[in-house]
């Protein structure tokens, strides 16, 4: 028995060494599209600049949080014209569990006058793993809270990617992938440089599905609201417009609206019932720049009517 346990423990000690070497070989040798269990290349995007900027940002009036529909919709230049300094603390596939982590980390540092939370049904029904992947590939430092959150997901892909990034980060800090069709402006905003990606996606008939909202996401969402309210910061929930057929695929949007509206004293704008068309969409979930212009002015008008704008300093 002793010999068996001794050999087994020795073997277990060898595993982490081989695992780390294997991770490097996997990322360097295997083509990116086949790297199913370590996700680095595609996931490193403009969010890198957002989380570089967030460390230096000061005097923010409006803090926006949420997934890509947030950081591709709120143009700080347009809000700046209305006198509101805006920062978008967005990251791809950000779901409430990631927003909660970011709010806890940055809210007291940024001290915004208003908190705008971009919500969507998809992020409430995700397990959050993809959101952690994007964050871990784009933030510069993993603190205890981040590591605890990632470990709690018990997801091998996250563990592999985290380990790879931590070890690879000792040697170099890779730059994010850049594409011609988009550019990082400033304060967390990413702009599309083309009017659309592929118009055929607007005519596809998507299979109907019911969104099941995860308990962990709902709980994180409630904790975010509590944290912001404790600091007496007004909150606005926003659903950005998505392509008509893509929106229609979900069978229970009313259920989601009802849940969001159950939070009294918080303004809620669902732009899917506003006057947006597919011509203002870049793809099925993101607007092009003309859509962004229209959307931002609509929001500024609403904020003004609710007396949230102009910002009182």
């Amino acid at each position: 028995m002793k010999a068996f346990l001794r050999k087994f423990i020795l073997f277990l000690l060898l595993v982490p060494v081989v695992w780390i070497l294997g991770l490097f070989a996997y990322v360097k040798v295997i083509p990116g599209f086949m790297q199913t269990n370590v996700r680095v290349n595609f996931y490193r995007n403009f969010n890198t600049y957002t989380f570089k900027d967030i460390d230096t940002v000061k005097n923010v009036d409006i803090l926006v949080a949420g997934p890509s529909s947030g950081f591709r919709s709120f143009d700080p230049r347009i809000f700046g014209q209305a006198g509101a300094r805006t920062f978008i603390m967005g990251s791809s596939a950000q779901s409430p569990v990631q927003t909660e982590y970011l709010v806890n980390k940055y809210l007291d540092k940024i001290k915004p006058k208003m908190f705008v939370y971009v919500i969507d049904m998809q992020s409430f029904s995700s397990d959050g793993a993809e959101g952690w992947l994007f964050l871990m590939n784009n933030i510069t430092h993993y603190d205890g809270g981040f590591l605890r959150n990632v470990m709690e997901t018990k997801n091998l892909i996250l563990l592999n990617t985290l380990t790879y990034n931590m070890v690879a980060g000792l040697f170099s800090k890779p730059e994010p992938a850049k594409y011609d069709f988009e550019s990082y402006v400033s304060n967390g905003f990413v702009q599309y440089n083309t009017p659309y990606r592929d118009t055929s996606v607007f005519s596809v008939t998507y299979s109907k599905a019911k969104c099941e909202f995860g308990d962990n996401q709902k709980q994180a969402f409630e904790r975010i609201i509590d944290a912001v309210r404790e600091r007496n910061i007004p909150i606005v929930f926003v659903q950005t417009p998505i392509a008509k057929k893509f929106f229609d695929r979900v069978t229970n949007p009313d259920e989601f609206d009802k849940y969001i509206q159950s939070h009294s004293g918080i303004h809620y704008i669902n732009c899917n019932y506003s006057n947006f068309t597919d011509h203002e969409m870049w793809d099925v979930i993101h607007m092009n720049q003309s859509g962004v212009d229209k959307f931002d002015h609509l929001l500024i008008d609403s904020f003004t009517s609710w007396k949230l704008l102009p910002i009182k300093r």
Partner: peptide
Amino acid sequence: YGFYLMLVLFILLFGTF
């Protein structure tokens, strides 16, 4: 032992959990 470790690596890098 290299073969054992290779199988462990396969599980960690190609496995679906």
